[in-house]
Nucleic acid binder design. Structure first.
Lengths: 112, 112
DNA sequence: TTAATAGTTCAGTAAGTATGAACTATTGAA
DNA sequence: TTCAATAGTTCATACTTACTGAACTATTAA
């Protein structure tokens, strides 16, 4: 099992972040991680938006979020703890990410 | 030649916009359209970011921006005039789009 | 008509995505 | 230890999507 790659802040790009967030499932994950205010394991997201997701798919979503520089994953015992890279993203990308999450939230509210 | 499709505001989605803007070429187009403050034809973008782009590729980029609801294209004589759907996007998505363009601009400045 | 301009569409290939199945890593018994 | 359970990761394959040269469409003008 290859070690998880976390890009340094200097390698994080706007297009990488947008690519990662162009999928509602990944935005839902990020959103939940943000609200949780604490790290969560992957299984906490097994069913997002009333549809259950295969764990392989979920794993890919986490990889993409991780490699975009949005989250940090760390193994603790049998599980993988994920948390937002808040401190590192602040300043450069915080405004954009917040605006995206807010727009998604507004859209979700409107559909309901 | 099939008629160009412009989604109504109700069909514009956050994920669609993010997908469209997850490509630097398309962001460059949108950015230039925004700064131009007037409509521009496609050829105005033939070389973005110091690399010339095949016109078929450019055409696809415009189609994606159009179908995401970000721009409106209209034939005028032989050329196709493109402009941002400013008024329609205001309120719902303006903040997000501005934040994205600003983040891209910051990134570009830093690379230079 | 014919040519020029400005794209659009098609076709083929290349690259990316989703997911079941198999595998890895860790913990906790028996 | 060995076995099972838990929590993912990686692989293989099918499927979808993107890039781009070539062919086509639409408009204008000579």
């Amino acid at each position: 099992m290859r070690p998880l790659y976390h890009p340094p802040v200097s390698e994080i790009t706007v297009e990488g972040i947008l690519y990662a967030l162009a999928d509602p499932a990944r935005v839902a994950i990020l959103s939940q991680l943000m609200n949780a205010e604490c790290e969560q394991n992957c299984t906490a997201f097994a069913k997002l938006g009333n549809k259950k997701m295969p764990k392989s798919t979920l794993s890919q979503h986490f990889r993409i979020l991780r490699e975009a520089g949005l989250i940090r994953s760390e193994r603790v015992g049998v599980e993988m703890r994920n948390r937002i890279r808040c401190g590192e993203l602040k300043g450069k990308y915080a405004t954009m990410i917040e605006a995206i999450l807010k727009a998604y939230a507004g859209q979700k509210r409107q559909k309901a």
